[in-house]
Simulated scan of single mutants.
Amino acid sequence: MDQDLLDDLLSRVSRFASILGISRSELKIYSTLLLEGQSSARDLSDKLNISYTKIYSILNRLEERGWIKKVGKRPVRYEAVSLRDLWSNIKKLLELRVSQFEREFIEPLSTMIDSSSAYTVVVVPSANLKKTLIDVLNEPSKQYLIAISSQELLDDEVYQIINGKSFTSEVRVIIQRGIKIPEKVSIQLKVLDNMFGSGIVTSSSVLLVIKSHESLSGIISNHRYLVDIAQVYFNHLWEQASPIGTNP
């Protein structure tokens, strides 16, 4: 396993993962088990330089989340579930966190203000995704921060809308390497090798798009706190991204 490459990957994803309550140590232990195969708690402790007491605590959390499972006895060994199962697990966690935030903060707060000012957090099914994406792009906004990791999101219609917005607003676009774009580009455009998902951030809303089992779905919200988080995360990705035509 290329430890430097793994450390770089964990550094890039840890900030986002922390929003979901997932620690860097949890990501590192899961990744080690996935890449190197079954291991005992003692071996993991020695290999990752994590105390034996702490390693058990983390392994228990990962097992409760369904990221790893026990194999054999004396000593008990652990193995990672597949990436497909992990992604399904994380999607459920993301939906749970959004629902919890809505239930514990958005809904109580909305009762204290006029209903016309209430914020929304809405799950967007695959069938409505393109219409919602175009609706967000057509919102009046001073800026449009756009990340595209799936080719199906960047068809001619969507690209023309994005290009048109660049004449009246600040438009910055990050695409995942391999996404095809028109030869003549008039927008601020950068490229990253890998991204968590796709999304659009305007001055007043955020649309997050994720892909699972070859199907796209999304979450859209106009909550100021979520918009601010999305802007910060996009700007972090923008700093990491490379201009089109350069190698990472």
Rank of each mutant, 00 (worst) to 15 (best):
E107D: 12
Y119P: 04
S51Q: 09
Y119R: 09
T120N: 12
T120D: 09
Q38S: 15
D43E: 15
N60V: 00
K91M: 07
L59I: 10
I68E: 07
R97L: 05
V121F: 10
S110G: 13
K70D: 01
R84M: 02
P108E: 00
L48N: 03
I113S: 07
L35E: 13
V71F: 11
L83Q: 14
S45R: 00
R42T: 11
S51D: 15
D43C: 12
N49V: 12
V76Y: 08
R65F: 11
E36W: 02
I55C: 04
I90N: 00
Y119S: 13
N89D: 01
R84N: 05
K92H: 03
E102I: 01
L86M: 08
V76H: 10
D43I: 15
N60D: 14
L35C: 04
K73M: 12
P108S: 02
V71E: 15
N49F: 14
R61A: 07
S40C: 05
P75Y: 03
L62D: 08
D85I: 03
Y52C: 06
V76W: 07
Q38Y: 06
E64Y: 05
N49W: 05
T120G: 08
D85H: 06
I55F: 06
G66A: 02
S115M: 04
I90Y: 01
A80Y: 01
K92M: 06
T111A: 05
R84Q: 10
M112Q: 11
Y52W: 08
L48R: 03
V121S: 08
V76G: 08
E102Y: 01
K91A: 05
P75W: 04
I90G: 01
K69I: 06
T53R: 13
Y78Q: 09
E36Q: 12
L96E: 03
E104Y: 08
L109T: 09
D43G: 10
S110P: 09
A80N: 02
S117I: 09
E64P: 04
P75L: 01
Q100R: 15
S82D: 09
G37F: 06
S40D: 13
R65I: 07
R74E: 03
L86A: 05
A80H: 01
L35W: 06
Q38D: 04
F105Y: 14
S99G: 15
K92G: 02
S88P: 00
E95A: 12
S39W: 06
G72E: 11
T111E: 13
S117P: 00
R61V: 13
L35N: 12
D114E: 04
N60W: 06
S88L: 10
S40A: 02
P108W: 03
G37I: 07
D114S: 13
L86C: 01
K73R: 09
E104T: 08
G72L: 06
K54F: 05
K70M: 10
N89I: 07
K69G: 04
L59H: 04
L86Y: 05
A118I: 06
G37Q: 07
R65G: 09
D85Q: 14
